[in-house]
Amino acid sequence: MTISIYRRAPAAGVFAILSMFCAWGMGPATAQDAKTPDYEAIVASPDRSDADRQTDQRRQPAKMLAFTGAKPGMKVLDMEASGGYSTELLARAVAPSGTVYAQDSAAVVERSVKDKFDTRAQKPAMKNVVHVVRNYDDPIPPDVGGLDLITFFFAYHDMTYMPVDRAEMNRKMFAALKPGGFLVIADHSAKSGDSATVGKTLHRIEESTLRQEIEAAGFKLVTEADFLRHPEDPRDAPVFHPQVPTDEFVLKYQKPS
């Protein structure tokens, strides 16, 4: 099931025409869409919430947005969007003509995130977001394809203790990306040898395990980032009660052209 949370009519006909051209990748908006946004300015937007600014302190969102390469006009899938912290940032980065599909399963939405996401969805910055309520191993509506970017932030480990076919999920993500499109995935690092066994207890996953699963679907590693690395983390405590900053890995994969 796909739920559109925003479909406001443009204020003027000329704006509507320009928006259509932009969505089709043609016309006057194309040059603007090629520009890289000012990610620091996005993060500093005065209408962002205090709660999100608190989260910024550990997430380093400007660096994460730059690493994703999100730009105006892009079509993005945000896996396990949860309360929409990353969804909103991505929506700001791909505005005004891009779209962000914020995905979560029906069970998770009803149990823990519906109110948070619905409240966020009322913000003007979320006008180009579509809330997609589907199972994680079938996350993309059949009428959605040719995605430029998929993000999977700090949630892949959740798939290890839910009834999710991760191999099928990864195949579906691969199929939904356009050739040359990117998957950016970040998660909390588990100790060597922990594999996928501590997802529920520590909310972590061993990096090598995640890499193997993603690469089995056909994704090719392009680069990785170290701005969330914390080698001082012994990686043996739940991430919600860290004694030191949590060690986290950030990886960028690509669907071969």
Results as ranks from 00 to 15, higher is better:
I42K: 00
M1S: 13
D165N: 14
G83F: 00
S112V: 15
S19T: 14
A34H: 04
A167P: 07
Q32Y: 09
P256H: 01
Y156V: 14
M26C: 11
G83A: 02
D47V: 13
E213C: 08
D50Q: 09
E168F: 02
A217Q: 08
T223S: 10
L251I: 15
T55Q: 13
D138E: 14
V164L: 04
N128W: 05
G73L: 07
T68Y: 04
L228S: 09
F182V: 12
M162P: 02
L149V: 13
R7H: 13
M64G: 06
V94I: 10
I185S: 02
P163S: 12
P245E: 05
G199F: 03
K127F: 01
G193C: 03
G180F: 00
D115N: 13
R211D: 10
G83R: 00
K63G: 02
P179Q: 06
V113R: 01
A91D: 12
D115F: 04
S4T: 14
L202C: 10
M1A: 11
I185N: 02
F174R: 04
V43F: 07
A216P: 12
V129Q: 08
P72R: 01
A31Q: 08
T68M: 09
P124C: 09
R166H: 05
P37S: 14
D158M: 11
V76N: 04
Q54I: 15
M74R: 00
D33A: 15
M173E: 12
V144I: 15
K255T: 11
T30P: 00
R53F: 11
G146N: 15
T119P: 04
G218S: 11
A12C: 06
D226F: 07
K172E: 14
R59K: 11
A121V: 14
R166F: 03
L149C: 09
A31C: 05
F152N: 10
P179A: 06
A23Q: 07
N170F: 09
V109T: 06
L65C: 10
M74A: 09
R211E: 06
A106E: 12
M162Q: 14
K123V: 06
F67R: 08
T30Y: 01
S208F: 01
G69F: 10
L77E: 03
P238Y: 08
L77G: 02
V133A: 03
A196F: 00
H157I: 08
S195L: 04
K63E: 11
K123G: 02
D148I: 11
D118N: 11
T99G: 10
K63Q: 11
V133K: 04
L228F: 04
I214V: 15
